[in-house]
Design a protein around this nucleic acid. Structure first.
Lengths: 139, 139
DNA sequence: ATCTTATTGCAACATTGTTGCATTTAGGGT
DNA sequence: ACCCTAAATGCAACAATGTTGCAATAAGAT
């Protein structure tokens, strides 16, 4: 993706195409899997912490990126799929953390999962998986 | 549960029955749902932060309690079920956060969910759900 | 009652989140 | 090409939690 395209992406969401934002988008784009916060910070170094904080915040609010908590480790950020819009994040994917190579990726589970909790109104489901990824098994 | 029982529980896991640990176990026990970190801290106040940190750490390692990350909010702690042992945490339950009453509970989903990611070795699945809990719907 | 080892409590530091405010700048209008 | 204004940045400051080292204390075994 070019800076041109990123600029469009931002403008579509009424966000100005500023240096920190383009830098962040480029970093996330280069990094194939979900990117740990610390990696983002050092990649964009010496970016101001607050600027980075607010950059992530606004891009999340506008549905450009999303956050992935993974127990016991860093917090990860990744591009949203096409399904994410300003109004709603549509995440059917799960976050998979590989114990071997330590990367976090967004995966689409084959069998769609139906969680059933009688009496409850389920509005949002977030799934984190740990294990060994395809690449590490093959290798 | 009595302090007597908590003491046994700790001894079974080669942990000494100290004041901070018993206080923590009592607090978690009184609190019906999963307890936010901040609530634990103020309940046990004025406990030393490091002591609390290490108390949570050791009780987690020994499978007495477990942690529940919930996006965008506090970190919650709760007792493990009977299935949790020193060797392995067996969590078939999901963490449910109610948007109305803001409590986090551990629920057992009716239909057991099978997530299928061909080519991957899935070792641990962690599920967080947001919505409205039974009590709030009824009320 | 004593001893050994686990545990605590304190100091110190690191990381991330968060707000306020003055300054700068992107991008629309002229 | 030049303004203008709202948006965005950069800095200072503070809060919450995580984390390590170490000396002092106390639990539980003997």
């Amino acid at each position: 993706m070019t800076n041109q395209e990123f600029t469009e992406l931002l403008h579509n969401r009424s966000l100005k195409a500023t240096a920190p934002r383009l830098a962040l988008l480029n970093a996330l784009h280069e990094y194939k899997s979900a990117m740990p916060y610390s990696a983002i910070q050092s990649k964009l170094s010496p970016i101001d912490r607050v600027t980075l904080y607010r950059t992530l915040e606004s891009l999340m609010k506008k549905g450009v990126i999303h956050k992935a908590h993974q127990e016991g480790s860093d917090i990860f950020y990744a591009f949203c799929g096409h399904s994410c819009s300003i109004e709603q994040h549509q995440h059917n994917h799960v976050h998979f953390k590989c114990k071997s190579c330590d990367t976090v990726t967004c995966e689409e589970p084959k069998r769609s999962l139906h969680i059933s909790l009688p009496g409850y109104d389920i509005q949002k489901v977030s799934i984190s998986i740990e294990g060994i990824c395809k690449d590490c098994i093959t290798a």
